[in-house]
Every structure is written in structure tokens, then in C-alpha cells.
């Protein structure tokens, strides 16, 4: 009996250790960028920085944020604005549409939902979308980040499923009291939809923040660019290194292009990582309600 118990413990110790190791491997690359950013550039250039930082200094973040040539502050500001307004527009439009489509009085609801699903499964592709959106004036127009994506069919389904699960008697009771459909929505259903609104809100926000392809196609003017585009220019294309990221010395520390690239990566991922602990429960519930087409 004792022996049996000991065996189980051994399995658990090994299992826990391996899983913790996997978790560390998942998260370490994000930390690695922080370590590279704050290491002394001289050690980096000499190839002496491996797993942990060497000769730390935090000046690099101040420097890259204040250097207008790198456009990081501009990109962050644009990304914040697009994400804020895009999320508001997305959540409001999706919720109202889901509400109307969840009411049995709306006889055309199956047809409309079917059409949403059809266009979701059958993708038109980048070029036809570009032709339509350019006709509608979305090229070099920041609204491209806010309006065309206002309804994500997957989130519409999640939201509609949730609303259909609420008892219909709620509406009946309010209607007897003389409320109209709009009042039923705002006074009865909205207050009990907070969790679903938070779920689709976080999904929209992360989706907009992370977009690279749409801004890359539509937002060519440098003043509209988002942080993901800026990141690509700074880190992935090597042509601009020499001019924009010259090595400098601050308080006896060297800052070179490696520090600055890593700092740009850290700044671009920081908002998501900072809010992640608070919103991950919404992500999880969203996935479990609508585990559908990837």
C-alpha cells in the first residue's frame, strides 16, 4: 500500500515538472524580448547575452517611444483608437443584430442568419473585397478598421445563442407593462447580457489590435499605420536599420538596433499581456460557447 502511494507521487512530481516546464517554454520567449531590450547593447553586439539580461537599463523604452523616426508612439496611438472605436461599433452592431435575430417575431431571421453563415463559409477573398471597399472609399481611411468588420459571424452566432437561451417570458412581461421593443432590449435584456458583451468585446478588441493584413492593404499613409505594421518595418525588414536605429550611448550604456527592436516588440505586445489575466475567463467562455469554424 505504501509503495503504491509513493509510485503515484513520483508520477505527479514528474508530470507537474514537465508541464511547468512547457508553460515556461510558452511564456519565456516573451520574457526573452524584455531581457534583450534591457540588456546593455555592447554585450548584445558581442553575442554575450543568452538566457538572462546582462547590464540592465530601462532607458531603451523611453528612447524608442520618444524617437519620432521609429513611429512607435504613432502606431500605438492609432492601434488604440481603432481598437477602441472598432470594439464599440462591433459590440453594439453585433448585439443589436443578434437580439433582433433571436426574436421569434422576426419571421425572416432564419433567412438572414443563413446568409450570414453562407458568406462566412464561402470566402470572397482579398481582391473582390478590396474592389468593393475601395469603391466605398475605404482606402487610406481609418474607418476600414472599424466599419467593415462590425459583424463577425462567429461572434454573432455566440451572441444569438446566448440570447435565445434567455427565457422569452422576460419580454412578454415587459410588453404587458407597456414597454416597446427598444425598451425591452435596453432595460430587460442588456443588464443580463454583461458577460456575453464582455466576451465578444474582448474578442473584437484582440482581433482589431492584432490585425496586420487589413491595415497593410488599406492603410498606406504613414500617419494611419498601426503598431503591427510599424513592428514589421522595424524588426523584419533589414533595410532601414542603419538610418533609423543608430547605436547611441545613454548614461554609459549602449543602445543598439537589437535593443530597439526588442523594445518595439515588448511595447507592441504589452497591452494584450497586461489585460490577459483579467479577461482570460471571457476568452474561455467565448471559446466554449462557440467552438466553431476556427
Amino acid at each position: 500500500m505504501m509503495k503504491h502511494k509513493k509510485k503515484i507521487d513520483l508520477f505527479e512530481i514528474i508530470n507537474d515538472t514537465i508541464l511547468i516546464l512547457i508553460a515556461v517554454i510558452c511564456v519565456y520567449p516573451f520574457l526573452y524580448e524584455v531581457f534583450i531590450a534591457i540588456s546593455d547593447g555592447r554585450y548584445l553586439a558581442a553575442g554575450q547575452v543568452t538566457f538572462f539580461p546582462k547590464g540592465t537599463n530601462l532607458e531603451v523604452f523611453k528612447y524608442v517611444l520618444n524617437n519620432p523616426k521609429l513611429n512607435i508612439t504613432l502606431g500605438m496611438r492609432n492601434s488604440f483608437l481603432y481598437t477602441l472605436f472598432g470594439t464599440i461599433v462591433g459590440v453594439v452592431t453585433t448585439y443589436i443584430t443578434a437580439y433582433a435575430l433571436s426574436r421569434p417575431q422576426v419571421k425572416s431571421r432564419f433567412l438572414i442568419m443563413g446568409l450570414f453563415t453562407l458568406t462566412w463559409v464561402f470566402e470572397a477573398g482579398l481582391i473582390p473585397t478590396y474592389i468593393i471597399l475601395s469603391k466605398l472609399g475605404y482606402v487610406d481611411n481609418p474607418l476600414v478598421m472599424i466599419i467593415p468588420g462590425a459583424i463577425n459571424t462567429q461572434y454573432l452566432i455566440i451572441c444569438k445563442t446566448y440570447l435565445e437561451g434567455l427565457p422569452y417570458e422576460l419580454e412578454d412581461a415587459a410588453m404587458v407593462d407597456g414597454a416597446n421593443q427598444f425598451q425591452v432590449l435596453t432595460n430587460v435584456y442588456l443588464p443580463i447580457s454583461k458577460s456575453i458583451l464582455a466576451t465578444i468585446g474582448t474578442f473584437y478588441a484582440v482581433g482589431i489590435w492584432n490585425q496586420y493584413l487589413t491595415p497593410q492593404i488599406y492603410l498606406k499613409k504613414s500617419e494611419y499605420k498601426v503598431i503591427q505594421q510599424i513592428l514589421r518595418t522595424l524588426v523584419l525588414s533589414s533595410s532601414t536599420d542603419g538610418e533609423t536605429m543608430q547605436t547611441i550611448n545613454i548614461n554609459g550604456f549602449a543602445l543598439n538596433q537589437y535593443n530597439m527592436k526588442a523594445a518595439a516588440i515588448v511595447i507592441a505586445m504589452a497591452p494584450i499581456i497586461l489585460v490577459y489575466p483579467f479577461v482570460q475567463k471571457y476568452f474561455k467562455s467565448g471559446i466554449l460557447i462557440g467552438s466553431v469554424k476556427g
Binding site: W209, N210, Q228, L231, M269, F283
Partner: peptide
């Protein structure tokens, strides 16, 4: 939840 741009940069 991390963007492809960040992941590829890392």
C-alpha cells in the same frame, strides 16, 4: 492572443 506580427518578430 498575441498577434502574428509579434510572434514572427520574436
Amino acid at each position: 492572443f498575441i498577434s502574428s506580427a509579434v510572434m514572427v518578430s520574436i
